[in-house]
Design a protein around this nucleic acid. Sequence first.
DNA 1: GCATGCCAACTTCCATGGAAGATGTGATTC
DNA 2: GAATCACATCTTCCATGGAAGTTGGCATGC
Lengths: 236, 236
Amino acid sequence: MLVDKLHMRARQEPEKKPSLVEDAYKALKDAIRNNVFPPGYQGSEQEIALRLGMSRTPVHEAIIRLQEDGLVRVLSKRGVTVCPLAPEDIREIYEVIIAIEAMASELLAALPDEERQLVADELEEATSDMEQALRDDDLLAWAAADDLFHRTLVERCGNSRIRRIAQTLTDQAHRARMLTLKLRSKPTGSIAAHRDIIAAIRKGKAAEAHQQARQHRISARDELVPLIVSVGIKHL
Amino acid sequence: MLVDKLHMRARQEPEKKPSLVEDAYKALKDAIRNNVFPPGYQGSEQEIALRLGMSRTPVHEAIIRLQEDGLVRVLSKRGVTVCPLAPEDIREIYEVIIAIEAMASELLAALPDEERQLVADELEEATSDMEQALRDDDLLAWAAADDLFHRTLVERCGNSRIRRIAQTLTDQAHRARMLTLKLRSKPTGSIAAHRDIIAAIRKGKAAEAHQQARQHRISARDELVPLIVSVGIKHL
DNA sequence: GCATGCCAACTTCCATGGAAGATGTGATTC
DNA sequence: GAATCACATCTTCCATGGAAGTTGGCATGC
């Protein structure tokens, strides 16, 4: 235990201390993700503070961070509003994801052999979870496993900035993702695409991994964006 | 004048109102960029507030934003410190830039003809400025023109998230850039590379524009990172 | 009925004070 | 002389109040 503590210190991990700001940030982010505050919702910091049982200050500061993340917007003296996502925004987000994840895959494929195989194993596990979920007809489990695959991709690539950017983007896109999940047909194609990416990583073929990941996300975009447009949703 | 105001409103531009937080944010960012607060500098919000002639609150909130940008870090109860950049960070930043700008170029090349040529003209202008600066032996002007080229690339690509991410990254890398500017030999190669990118955009060849921009930034990374390592700088 | 202007009720924005935590210094103990 | 502990001082963190700005409604005038 003592060793653990020292280890933590040595690892430069500055010890998490739960602050009210952090609590508010997480709670609000979660509330937005799960449509507790639907897009377009407008409320006051006072009201949110009351709901979270804290003062206005930590709420205010959490909202500053959420605004930096692009999730909310404060309308100077008129309250804070949850940013709605237009199809245009989804397109933008996917364009960045295409570029970012392709780079992440490329970096993974350039890792030393041992670690590369380890990551590939993790990716493979997430992919078989998707397979299983599909057999069980459990869309939510499928989405969770798919999420895990893509999260692993960026978290293991060795670039903290890629990880952070990808996280912020998927936070934004989460609502759209949940919507389209129910709308489209069974996503059987993803599994094969994931296996292609994994294979390229295993072989250490950076260019191929890049191309496969890129194509996978391009396909996703080309499927989702028209779908969203077709249902006539202006924002969500 | 009245027309202007109406025009602004119509354009959904929510009217900039200079708030103290915004002032503090810009002032601090600028101070960090220009090494007024050198990397590793540690100070208190109180002190900064005094220096900027305002209360602690707006400074505190500005620092939250700067922390979100990755420029500073607040050490809970021990002051705020300016994040030093290790060579590792430079590598990370460039990896993201490689991916992001390649995508931006690709998007530019996919624009409708008219706008594409317009942007190409802008890019060409920045590039000839670089040429001129090189003839004048004015490194600072060269850097400014080079900056403008890359900024134009991402600002005109039609993706606001790409623009934002690129801006944040270049803010972080600015110090490193200024340092290496003096260290390396004359950057004559960039001009040809820029022209290749411009040509691809003019022709509307998305894949080629992507590849050219990517290669240009890869070269930059492969030149800068070893350079920084070679001078034995651990962080800056 | 309709436009106009005032006003009360909100909102964020900023200042300030106290609470709690971190740090370094010096007294105390052995 | 070295280790330990109390404490003074500095820091961020959070609460709260007042200032300034925005909005919607209501009275007023025609």
